[in-house]
C-alpha cells in the first residue's frame, strides 16, 4: 500500500509517497538517497542506523515509514552547517574517533541527541547515551572524549 508522508529532514520539507511496509531507514536511504545512515543489523542492536526523530535518538531500522509522518528528522547529513563541520564532527575527526567509519554516523547522531538535551554531559552520561551504538574498531574512549570535549566547548 502506498502512503503519503510529510516530514522535515535536515531542515528540508518533504512530501513523499512510499510503501507502507518500508522502514524509515529505507525511506531515508532509498527514497531520499541519504545514504549516510547505515544498516548494520536491521534489528535495532548495533545502532549504525541511529537518527534523531523529534529530538530523540532512534534506530531507524525499527521505525515504520508511516511513523515518520509529521516528524522532524535529523541524519548525519544534517550536521554540517554551511559546508563546515560541526564541532562534534570536528572533534571526532581530530581525536581519532573514526576508524572504519561504519558506526560513525549512528554514533554521531546518538551523541548529537544527547548534546541537544544535555549540552555538557558527564562521561557516564555519554557512555549511557552511546551504549546502543556498537563500535568494533576504536575501543570507544576516543569517541567518548570527542563528545566530552564538544560538551566542554558548549560551556
Amino acid at each position: 500500500m502506498i502512503i503519503h508522508i510529510k516530514f522535515k529532514v535536515n531542515g528540508v520539507d518533504y512530501d513523499i509517497k512510499t510503501e507502507n511496509n518500508k522502514r524509515l531507514l529505507d525511506v531515508l536511504r532509498d527514497d531520499l538517497r541519504l545514504t549516510g545512515t547505515k544498516e548494520g543489523c536491521g534489528i535495532g542492536e548495533c545502532g549504525a542506523c541511529t537518527i534523531i526523530m523529534d529530538g530523540e535518538a532512534v534506530n531507524s531500522c525499527m521505525v515504520l515509514a508511516g511513523r515518520a509522518n509529521n516528524t522532524e528528522i535529523m541524519t548525519v547529513e544534517g550536521l554540517e552547517k554551511d559546508g563546515e563541520l560541526s564541532t562534534l564532527q570536528d572533534n571526532f575527526v581530530k581525536m581519532g574517533a573514526v576508524q572504519c567509519g561504519f558506526c560513525t554516523p549512528g554514533m554521531l547522531m546518538s551523541a548529537k541527541a544527547l548534546l541537544m538535551k544535555n549540552p555538557d554531559p558527564t562521561v557516564e552520561e555519554i557512555k549511557e547515551a552511546i551504549a546502543g551504538n556498537l563500535c568494533r574498531c576504536t575501543g570507544y574512549t576516543q569517541i567518548v572524549e570527542a563528545i566530552k570535549k564538544t560538551g566542554e566547548e558548549n560551556r
Binding site: 545514504t35 549516510g36 547505515k38 550536521l79 563541520l85 564532527q89 575527526v93 581519532g96 573514526v98 567509519g101
Partner: peptide, 23 residues
C-alpha cells in the same frame, strides 16, 4: 606525526560510499 586521517571528514559527513550505498 599524528595527522588526521585523510578519510575521516568524508566519514563524519556520511559521504563515504560503502557497498550498501551503491545503487
Amino acid at each position: 606525526k599524528s595527522i588526521i586521517r585523510l578519510d575521516s571528514v568524508e566519514k563524519v559527513t556520511g559521504k563515504t560510499l560503502y557497498v550498501e550505498d551503491i545503487k
